[in-house]
Amino acid sequence: MTQLSVNINKVATLRNARGGSNPNVVQVAKDCERFGAQGITVHPRPDERHITEQDVYNLKDVVTTEFNIEGYPDERFMKIIEEVRPAQATLVPDPPDVLTSNAGWDTVNNESKLKEIITQIKSWGIRTSIFIEPEDRMMEGAMKCGSDRVELYTEMYASSFHSNKETAVEAYKSSARFANEIGLGINAGHDLDLSNLKYLKEQIPFLMEVSIGHALFCDALYYGLENTIQMYLRELDVN
């Protein structure tokens, strides 16, 4: 079964709007797990506009499912990864000033850099994943860098889904199949929601993990967090 990792960045965004500790990021992470989530994802950016560095350390001994820390692998990020030792580190190529992750890695032109970073992270016993667009040559580059998995950047799929879902998913099916053949695990994330998640899972049955935050917490405003997590889990249970 594809695992659901809940990205709790938006919880921290809401907290930061007023300061203090309401909503409590640690408690929400524990509740997400209690409600069925199989992982917790955070993206601690340098400006701390949502998840802070302290949040990550507070979550270190609280998360009992898979802890996934994503971000740009600068010195600060690597220090966090080394000290926290999450189950997975997802490398994202976004600079500090972007609003949200908006592109995948060029694993061909960054092969040497990524290989060095991934070798270091794996020496700490941490699984690695690279945020990537659905292109075979980038998948092959990820494999050459030594990554364990790739995370498909699914914004293009999501934006085209309602106009033509077959066309929208085609590149993802093809590149995921190629990645699977060369030994890479497949994750996915970005703009996945209750309308497009099930179809993606149907088309990529060996999908290992999805990381979902923004849409899930928008849905939780109407359906409640526990019910929403269960709804997302049902969309993934298509076997």
Rank of each mutant, 00 (worst) to 15 (best):
S5I: 03
V6D: 07
N7F: 02
I8M: 07
I8G: 10
N9F: 02
A12P: 09
A12E: 11
T13P: 08
G19K: 10
G19C: 06
G19V: 03
S21T: 14
V28K: 08
C32N: 04
E33K: 03
R34E: 14
G36C: 08
Q38C: 00
P44Q: 03
P44V: 11
R45A: 04
I51R: 02
T52L: 05
T52M: 07
E53S: 13
D55L: 05
D55C: 05
T65W: 04
F67D: 03
N68G: 09
I69C: 05
G71D: 10
Y72K: 11
Y72G: 09
R76W: 06
R76Q: 13
F77W: 06
M78H: 05
M78W: 02
K79F: 12
V84K: 08
R85G: 05
A87K: 12
V92P: 06
D97W: 06
L99I: 12
L99P: 00
D106I: 03
N110R: 10
E111F: 08
S112G: 07
S112F: 12
K113T: 14
E116Y: 10
T119G: 13
Q120A: 13
Q120H: 09
I121G: 13
K122R: 15
G125M: 05
G125L: 05
I126H: 11
S129A: 15
S129G: 15
I132V: 15
I132H: 00
E135K: 15
D136E: 15
M138N: 15
M139N: 04
E140T: 09
E140H: 07
A142S: 13
K144G: 08
C145I: 10
C145L: 01
D148S: 08
E151Q: 11
E151G: 09
L152V: 05
L152N: 01
Y153Q: 03
E155N: 14
A158H: 06
F161W: 05
F161A: 00
S163G: 02
K165V: 00
T167H: 12
V169S: 01
A171F: 04
K173A: 02
S174M: 10
A176I: 00
R177C: 06
A179H: 02
N180I: 00
N180D: 13
I182S: 04
L184T: 01
D191S: 14
K198F: 04
K198V: 02
Q203E: 14
V210I: 11
V210D: 13
H214E: 11
C218P: 00
D219N: 15
D219E: 15
Y222T: 14
Y222D: 13
Y222M: 15
Y223T: 11
Y223K: 14
G224H: 06
L225C: 03
N227I: 08
I229C: 03
L233V: 08
L233E: 06
V238A: 12
